[in-house]
Design a protein around this nucleic acid. Structure first.
Lengths: 185, 185, 185, 185
DNA sequence: AATGAATGAGGATTCATTCAT
DNA sequence: TATGAATGAATCCTCATTCAT
């Protein structure tokens, strides 16, 4: 029953606590206690606290990477762009906790090497949505279509609706933005 | 010239460091050292570390409060809404460091009583931009117009342009969103 | 009664424990407990554990530095060399614990920046005792005269005598060596 | 080819690291990693960390024991004493790393039961070089002749010469000391 | 002959905070 | 208006060691 799943469990509990309290305010003691293991056990599985976080990221980042790769092979039509946003919406919703964590702990992430990784990923996505030499307004539109989806997933929880409905609304707005950006070109 | 302005200087240095490294990773020792005073001196001026942060917020929040109050007295026309976004853009740019800090330290802010304050402020603004019973899409549009401006101020720094130009582009896009939201109603 | 003498007391107790158990095996907890203070108190007075050690060295190294300076201004006669050894013997006996510590913790000292310091000091002394271009045997003799005194102070405690007598015997032998080295030149 | 020689390899790597970094600062993890095995594997071959060190000593100590035994059977002439120093020089140079380790980690060795062992060995050697009831100066001379050789092997590396030449010079000086001690009797 | 998983004890260090002066 | 001295609690991390497999 202890078949290498401790590794997993650490990641799960860690993410849970990181999301609930922030990375800095979550101590390894806490993680260990929740798991019913010693702090030292964590260090058997991960070299550092940062390492735990990185490993979680790696797992959750794969879908985004795949999405970017997929996008690169598509024709750069409006329909493609919409599909990308659709898929990104999916990814976001599937790994909600992680993305919420990223949104709320930017300061921490910045100095954790993750900063660059994330920036690159975002730029990679952006590049699929507008030509780099597009008009400034259009580039803002494209970026905004992405941000809308992030914001819509985490920050708009005030609009206490059926989450699925909200998700669709957000996607609609994002599509509008990308459509405008596309025609601007 | 050093008459009671230590209070000020503490706030300034603190904000600077909070922005640069995050709240959690900034220690009182650091702040004190930069100022050439003792940690204990900080405690003469502020009751706790959190207090320093709160005092900074209070100062920077007044403009937003004023904006909301002003908005409440205006007719709810599209032109008013645009003006609100224009003014909010101003506020954002004038207090950039603080808002950037808020953006990057959401996790910290959340448990610091500031969370609620901020949420209320955002909702206050939102309420000026859409009726609470508007269609979901329109509410998303309104929220997005605000988020766009936040994102545009901090996160879009990759689009290395003349900042003034960028600010205008962002405002343009925000205006588009609020216009759409307004007509949807 | 708490007049800045804690700094002193820390150095004293630390040296005592470092000598008795070695640097690595002496924990800050131990030092603090012996002093009836908190570990944190140590950190108020010294930046790191290494810092405590360094501060002790600085204090004890001054006499050696002075001796070297004095030696540089003397004529390079045999009598001068003997006087140097005599004075060095004094220094050694006055700061016995520290020198014993150095002798027994060379491995530790090596990576603690102290290594170089010590090497330089020994070479400085050596240079007063032989010309750098003297015959190899004579250089060995000079070096040995110094080592004899170190060994004689700490390692020869087996020869359970009156320490003062032993010290004189050691000095005699050292003098013989330096005499031989001097005539060899 | 990997038949039971792991035992050996552990000793080799351990000594190498002990010499390079000191006993305390060398962890079993490090040793294991260098060997490409698990820490647990070390425990298959040795009961404790200390055990590894002891086993290394045992191997290297035999020659000294043999030298002492040989010395006991010889007539106590000056020539014998010189020969003992000559042979000791050999032993020292053959097991340089180990002896260097002992020199630099005396503090550690002291509490590791090795302390007594070493002390006895040194006294055993000493006893071959002077009568226990000789004049104090002569006993100091004898002890010094031994220390010279230790110092000459490790600490005099500053005198960057041909090592073989240096070794001879050191032996010459040691011989002088023992000669003086012999005639003093 | 060796591994994978874990532990318990302890290490140095940092932090926000307090209080007498 | 500040400082000097100190604390208590917590932090991340490392280590030698164990044991079932």
């Amino acid at each position: 029953m202890s078949r290498g799943n401790t590794h997993q469990r650490i990641q799960d509990v860690a993410l849970e606590l990181f999301v609930a309290q922030g990375y800095d305010k979550t101590s390894l003691r806490e993680i260990a206690e929740r798991l019913g293991v010693t702090k030292a056990a964590l260090y058997y599985h991960f070299k550092t606290k940062e390492d735990i976080l990185l490993s979680i990221f790696d797992a959750a980042n794969r879908p985004v990477t795949e999405l970017i790769e997929w996008g690169r092979e598509q024709p750069r039509t409006l329909e493609t762009k919409k599909e990308i946003l659709r898929r990104y919406s999916d990814v976001l919703h599937r790994a909600q906790p992680l993305f919420r964590f990223m949104q709320e702990n930017q300061a921490t992430i910045r100095d954790l090497s993750l900063g660059d990784q994330m920036k690159k990923r975002m730029l990679g996505l952006s590049d699929l949505l507008v030509e780099p030499d597009a008009a400034l307004v259009d580039r803002v539109r494209a970026a905004t279509s992405l941000f809308t989806m992030h914001a819509g997933t985490f920050a708009l929880r005030g609009l206490e609706d059926d989450p699925e409905e909200r998700r669709e609304a957000v996607l609609t707005v994002a599509h509008e933005m990308i459509t405008a950006a596309h025609h601007g070109e």
